[in-house]
Amino acid sequence: MLLDTHHHSAFDHWWEYAAENYISWNGDEAVAMDLYYDPVVDEHLQSPLGLIAPTWYLAPQRREVAETAWKFGAAALGLLGDGDVGLTDFRDGLMLAWFTGEFADGKVKRKLWEACDTLFEPSLDPDSGEFTFGFGLNEPHPRGQFNARVMAGWVCQPGAWAQIFHTPNLEKHSQPCVEGVDFPRFAMSQAHWEKGSLHLAVDPCNSAMNSVKTSMNIRRLPADGEWILTSGDQTVSSCVAVGGETRIELQADGSSFTLTAADETVSP
């Protein structure tokens, strides 16, 4: 899609074969999948992991199979019932924490993370603002693959991973944007263009930076002239855009700001 090619048809061609030769079905529902097949020795290696392991990668491509696999694992560990989530070791929860964000939120996701946090050893550094999981491993560096996977699950909202591939947000590359943020002291917790306004919020890395004012550049505004910056408490200031660019200053306390053209005829 990004490069205007049709390479993904190779997957569809392969799936016809895979569905018949690598997957066991109960009606329309996949119930088992080879972990791998070796055509030289003609061996299908079966494993309970075979169906579950590809979930993240199948979610954008064969969502029904991926969701079946997620539900199978989630039910087995007690996530979908009324009982407790049955994790005895942090490793039990790694795949579940990774995949669940793509399929569930609300009560299910909260229940999962309440259980995972008892084993994952979450740690927010009070100075740097860096967040990692230690998993009780007592290692000098946070375990990379485990952290990366479960954080993908933490930030993912239902369907968000598949959306990247099905309906990518390409408009963002031509819409107004913010640059030159004093990161990592400050990070943008909100930054999106919607209905003719740029919506922004700044997260400070620690308590010393809380409520400090920080400046940043705005680019690709659709009109030059006066723009109005409105804070959450409706305090108003203005700035002038030239060549679609201006510079603004925001208070880093997580509160929301909107930047809107003074001329109300500027279209969204």
Binding site: G129, F131, N147, W154, F183, A187, E194, D203
Partner: peptide
């Protein structure tokens, strides 16, 4: 048109971003 939601990122997510940026 696809409906998009832009829920603010929380401390945990931005904290991970800070760590990963330093790492990378």
């Amino acid at each position: 048109m696809t409906t998009r939601t832009f829920e603010a990122l929380d401390k945990r997510s931005l904290g991970w971003l800070r760590y990963l940026y330093r790492k990378a």
